[in-house]
C-alpha cells in the first residue's frame, strides 16, 4: 500500500477537506503537479482548475478550485484557495452563463485589467464545467 499523508483544503469560508490521502494532483502555473508522500517541503502556487485526490482507501475525488497556493510540509499538505467546490455543488447553468459572459467580455476589447478579469473568470467557468461534466459521464 502506498504511503499516505494528511491533506487539508481550506478556504476563507470553510474547511473543505481534511483527511489522509495517497496522492494529490493540482493545476500549477507550470502544468499539472502531483504530490506523493515524502515530497520535499515547498510552497507552490495553485492555478484555477481541478484538484484530484486519491484518498487512503483508494477512492478518487475531484473538485474545482479557484487560484490559491499550497504548503507542503513533512507528512502534511495544506491547500489554500478562495473557493473550492465538489462537483455536486457546482451550478452548471450558472457556470455556462459565466462562460458566455466572460467570452463576450473578451470579445469586446477593454483595458488590460478588464481583460485579465474576464480571462480569469472564463478559466473559472471552464474548470467548473469540466469538473461537473466529468462526474456526469461516470
Amino acid at each position: 500500500m502506498a504511503q499516505t499523508y494528511r491533506l487539508d483544503i481550506i478556504t476563507p469560508e470553510r474547511q473543505f477537506y481534511s483527511g489522509m490521502v495517497e496522492e494529490l494532483v493540482v493545476d500549477s502555473p507550470r502544468g499539472k503537479m502531483g504530490v506523493l508522500a515524502g515530497h520535499v517541503p515547498m510552497v507552490a502556487a495553485v492555478s484555477i482548475g481541478t484538484i484530484d485526490i486519491r484518498d487512503s482507501e483508494g477512492r478518487r475525488l475531484q473538485c474545482f478550485t479557484s487560484d490559491g497556493f499550497m504548503e507542503i510540509r513533512p507528512g502534511e499538505v495544506v491547500v489554500m484557495a478562495q473557493t473550492v467546490e465538489w462537483p455536486e455543488e457546482i451550478d452548471e447553468r450558472r457556470a455556462t452563463e459565466a462562460r458566455v459572459k466572460a467570452e463576450e467580455h473578451l470579445r469586446q476589447k477593454h483595458s488590460i485589467h478588464e481583460y485579465q478579469i474576464a480571462s480569469a473568470s472564463l478559466a473559472r467557468a471552464m474548470a467548473r464545467l469540466r469538473v461537473r461534466r466529468s462526474v456526469n459521464i461516470d
Partner: peptide, 12 residues
C-alpha cells in the same frame, strides 16, 4: 529547514 518555491518565490 528551507522551503522550496514553485515556480519561484516571486510568483508564489
Amino acid at each position: 529547514g528551507a522551503l522550496e518555491y514553485d515556480p519561484d518565490p516571486a510568483t508564489v
